[in-house]
Write a protein that binds this DNA or RNA. Structure first.
Lengths: 112, 112
DNA sequence: TTGCGTTATTCATTTTAAAACATAACGTTT
DNA sequence: AAACGTTATGTTTTAAAATGAATAACGCAA
C-alpha cells in the first residue's frame, strides 16, 4: 500500500571504462539518429547539439569500444555520410535491453 | 560466458519531483555527515563542498520532501547545530535499501 | 558585554562545460 | 574546374555552475 506522493524513483545506467562514461541515453540516441539519417550532422541537428560535439562523441565511442561503432566517409555523393557498423547496431540493442530491465526495476520500486 | 573487457555497466538512482532531482548519492552522504557531525558546515568541509551549497541542498531537501529532513539551530553552544529528523533518518535508510538493489541489478548484468 | 562558531543569505569571482565560429579536406555532381 | 554538403578539427565565445568572500543573526560561554 503506497503512500500518495509526488516523489518518484528514477535512474540511469551507462557503460563506462576506467576513463569514465562511455555510452548512455544521449549517445545511444545519437547513434540511432546517425543510423536513421546516415549523417552525423543531421543527427546532431535533430538533437539540437553542435556538430562539433556529436563528432567528438562518435570519436570517443569508437575509441572506447576498441572497434568503431560508426564509420564515416567525407566527400562524394551528398558530401559524405556515416553508417553504423554491426558492432554499433549490436551495442544499441544491448543498451536497450539493459535499459528495459532498469525501467522494470524502477517500476517495481516506485513504492515511496 | 562473458567476453573479457574493460567495459563495465554502472548506474545511479535518485528520488525526484516534477521539479527535478531531489535526493541521490551525494545528498545522502551529506545527510549522513550532518547526522554524524551535528553540523552542516562540518559535513560540507568533509565533502570539500562549500557551506553555501550544502546549506542550499538542505533547503531543497526540506522543501522537496514536504517535511524537514534536517532541523537546524543557530547561536547557542558551539554556535549552532543541525540534526536529522526521524524522516531524515528513514529517508537515508530507504535510499540505501533501493541503492543496494540497484547494485545487485548492476552486478547481475555485468555480462558485456 | 565581548568573543566564538555556527546558521543564514547575498553578491562577486572563478571554473567548467557547451555552443558557436572558422577553416580545411574530400569526392561526387554539374 | 567550380559548387555542394559533409566530415574533420582547432579556436573563440557564451552560458551555466560552483566557489569564495562578505555580512548579518543568533545564543551560549567566559
Amino acid at each position: 500500500m503506497d503512500k500518495s506522493s509526488s516523489l518518484r524513483l528514477n535512474g540511469r545506467i551507462w557503460i563506462e571504462t576506467e576513463k569514465g562514461r562511455l555510452l548512455g541515453r544521449g549517445r545511444v540516441e545519437l547513434l540511432e539518429r546517425i543510423q536513421a539519417s546516415g549523417s552525423i550532422r543531421q543527427a546532431a541537428m535533430q538533437m539540437k547539439m553542435s556538430y562539433r560535439q556529436a563528432w567528438e562523441y562518435v570519436k570517443i565511442l569508437n575509441e572506447g569500444f576498441g572497434a568503431p561503432l560508426v564509420m564515416s566517409v567525407r566527400g562524394g555523393k551528398g558530401g559524405g555520410n556515416a553508417i553504423l557498423t554491426e558492432k554499433g547496431i549490436e551495442t544499441i540493442q544491448q543498451f536497450h535491453a539493459l535499459n528495459a530491465k532498469l525501467q522494470l526495476f524502477l517500476a517495481e520500486n516506485q513504492n515511496l
